[in-house]
């Protein structure tokens, strides 16, 4: 584990959030779907019809285009600094996959779409994963790492 200090980026982060919000509203307005990354990915792998697969593929295609657009505009990909090991990527990925499937959603589905609808399930889910993520980082950095 390394600790990589990052700068506070209020404007970029607020702007990024606004873009995520626009994307979320656009999908609800056009298709009536919640923009939950977990749901879109899981449904893409096990679609209920060919059209169901197509719109999810378009959505994911749009997502994948974004870093390339940024590369074209700014000359570099978005910063991806990874403080943890490859093993942590595998372990974390498996745990996230299991958790979001049992929990029926992740940061986008519960944290944005669900909270915006004032869904009690999503509010409870978001508070829960924020809390356990915080505890996990504390243990990694200040109990094991400290």
């Amino acid at each position: 584990m390394n600790v990589i200090a990052t700068e506070f980026t209020p404007w970029a982060s607020l702007g990024g959030g606004v873009l995520i919000g626009l994307a979320t509203v656009l999908l609800m307005w056009t298709r009536g779907n919640v923009l939950g990354a977990t749901g879109i990915l899981a449904g893409f792998m096990t679609p209920s019809s060919s059209w169901d697969w197509t719109w999810r593929a378009l959505m994911i295609g749009g997502m994948l285009t974004a870093p390339l657009v940024l590369l074209g505009l700014t000359g570099s990909f978005p910063a991806i600094e990874v403080p943890m090991s490859r093993f942590a990527m595998i372990l974390g990925g498996l745990i996230v996959g299991v958790g979001v499937t049992y929990g029926s959603g992740c940061t986008s589905g519960h944290g944005v779409c669900g909270i915006a609808r004032l869904s009690p399930r999503s509010i409870a889910a978001t508070l829960t994963f924020m809390l356990t993520a915080g505890i996990t980082v504390y243990i990694i950095r200040h109990v094991i790492g400290g």
Binding site: V82, P83, M84, A88, M89, L91, G92, G93, L94, I95, V96, G97, V98, G99, V100, T101, Y102, G103, S104, C106, T107, H110, A124, A125, T126, T128, F129, M130, L131, T132, A133, G134, I135, T136, V137, I140
Partner: peptide, 14 residues
């Protein structure tokens, strides 16, 4: 499920 997700998010950062 959400508690498990948070643990994985904390470990990997993604």
């Amino acid at each position: 499920g959400s508690a498990i997700f948070g643990i994985g998010w904390g470990i990997a950062g993604f």
